[in-house]
Amino acid sequence: MSEAPVAPDAKRTLSARGLSKIYHSGEVIVRALDNVDFDLFRGEIVVLLGPSGSGKSTLLNIVGGLDAPSKGQVFFKDQELTRFNDRALTAYRRDHVGFVFQFYNLIPSLTAAENVALVTEIAPDPVAPADALALVGLADRIHHFPAQLSGGEQQRVAIARAIAKRPEILLCDEPTGALDSKTGVIVLEALETINREFGTATALITHNADIAKMADRIVTLGDGRVTSVQENENRLPAAQIEW
């Protein structure tokens, strides 16, 4: 656990120090995170790798303001997230964080454009929903309801929804987990485009090592600890990834 304050760095969007998360599940104590440090810099793509139960999602949930650590600190720029109350965390998610989930979590009663508008309506400086959907290649599907879209299309709507508010951080938890490889690549391309266009710091959870090829950095977790951090010198475009 690091006691030292985080050095100020204009490029550092997010930093976590000494994060621990302990769940009490009945009489069993589960140590989901154990003294983890994590940074996310502007414009980079970080892939979090690791087997089930390694703590990836817990880490993402904590830095995304969905969960609180049992110990440790999280900073968003110079603000300490771990001191935020529920209201401030909601505002943090609303203004700065985009989420993409494995199961899309679209609102079935709203069309693609409306699902995006859901977020743009409450954001201070959003991208127009149609533009956001065009960015992910869905310009011609904007008036479709989720039930009328394929899985890959639904996931791209979810990405458009996540980035339409121009978030500084994009957190993706197994975004291709429910998709076949061909559709998955299209989704990854969309994430790549966003990262390039907006410079959004993107953290992507996967247990598919092939996807790590598109990352700037690869953080591997195991048993609640960071087991390795690798800089990826030969970043591949998403289109060239195959699995």
């Binding site: 909601t90 505002a91 943090y92 998610r93 609303r94 989420f99 979590n105 977020v119 409450i122 929804r161």
Partner: peptide, 16 residues
């Protein structure tokens, strides 16, 4: 519940 929780994650307040 799932829909509403998703909205909470997206930054909607409890009130909304």
């Amino acid at each position: 519940g799932r829909e509403l929780a998703s909205l909470r994650v997206l930054g909607f307040t409890r009130f909304e």
